[in-house]
Nucleic acid binder design. Structure first.
Lengths: 205, 205
DNA sequence: GTCTATACGTCGATAGAC
DNA sequence: GTCTATCGACGTATAGAC
């Protein structure tokens, strides 16, 4: 859900008085994404982002409501389909999909850091924007992966004696957790562990 | 490393002028743990913690140096051996150990929240206390679990064709990630996914 | 050594001018 | 639609009372 205030991107709502505002919002978002990708979530205050973008911090709250909503918007926009460099192959296993994702994430540590911050914030009370983002992402990701698991159990690429929902949750958890370990210590066997999980999920010989 | 300023707990350094300060520090820590366990990491400011404990916020920095170091001390003290309700069985598999840990964590969501915050903070630059805590915890935990894996591969409880270090990283990652998913959404199959991982790691029939 | 009082700069949010 | 001004709260630092 890149932007829930735009109800339907099909009918271009950007017209008249709205056009400039929406364009400006997008402009700010694009600039903020660059800042985050290169510098991570240090200097993450409304004021320092505003400084980089070239507006006052009050302008940011005008467009985004709060810092938290700005952060969510930055993350979602930067991972929106179309901005991702390469779509995963259609026959990739769930773990292979996450391996590819981990590989491309290494180029943009700042966004992974932002993701981690958002999830941690979502666990606290009184942060509805972050919570909505995090629960929505996990729910959708698990559902999508579980569907892939079911399909690949049919085609024999994944063993049939495992619960697709449990596999989906496990793969997401392993992927996130290993990403964290690797960011803290590059000697953590991120790829080896993911490859291991992939192998364990394939049918026994 | 609960307190690196105390070089050796064997020779009781708490004497004379030090005794009161150490006792007071412990008192503050104990009270802070209660606050976190019940209320989570909301109200986490130096000032609000000080209010609960009954001192000024400057007293906290006197004992702990900074907010970050206080948070680390709270988490480490609250998970110190002896404060844990029950030691894991000696013959438990790594995943079973994490299952037991997850079970007991459900009683103290605030501390899990604190852990998550600390790890997220550690990923940012310029937070040495959190980074030291997080890297230390992951390194030690992985080493400990890898050792268990090796032992249990010998005794036939874990399949021999997996790399102990990769297994350790995978189990830690899955455990952390599933904990997060469950905190955000209790319908996430935390236990099922851990049980699945446990089964996958056992020798094929 | 223990702890309070106080001050500094920054923060997110908001009100109101233009 | 964007600014300036202002608010209360924050983490940190320091001086000095005891």
């Amino acid at each position: 859900m890149p932007d829930e205030t735009l109800e339907n991107p099909e009918q271009p709502r950007a017209r008249g008085a709205y056009a400039k505002g929406i364009a400006r919002r997008q402009e700010i978002l694009d600039r903020a994404i660059e800042v985050f990708a290169e510098r991570g979530s240090d200097r993450t205050s409304l004021r320092s982002i505003a400084r980089e973008v070239g507006v006052t911090h009050a302008a940011l709250t005008h467009y985004f409501g709060s810092l938290e909503e700005l952060l969510v918007a930055v993350y979602e926009e930067s991972t929106a389909p179309g901005r991702q460099p390469d779509a995963p192959a259609d026959d990739a296993t769930p773990v292979e999909m996450m391996i590819e994702s981990a590989r491309s994430n290494r180029a943009i540590p700042g966004l992974v850091q932002l993701y981690s911050t958002l999830v941690a914030t979502a666990l606290e009370e009184g942060h509805p924007a972050a919570r909505t983002f995090a629960t929505g992402r996990f729910t959708r990701l698990r559902a999508r992966l579980a569907e892939v698991v079911r399909r690949q159990q049919e085609s024999g690429r994944i063993r049939k004696d495992v619960d697709p929902d449990a596999v989906a949750a496990l793969v997401v958890a392993a992927s996130d957790g290993l990403q964290t370990q690797w960011l803290l210590d590059e000697s953590a066997p991120q790829h080896e562990a993911l490859a291991l999980l992939d192998r364990l999920l394939r049918p026994a010989l």
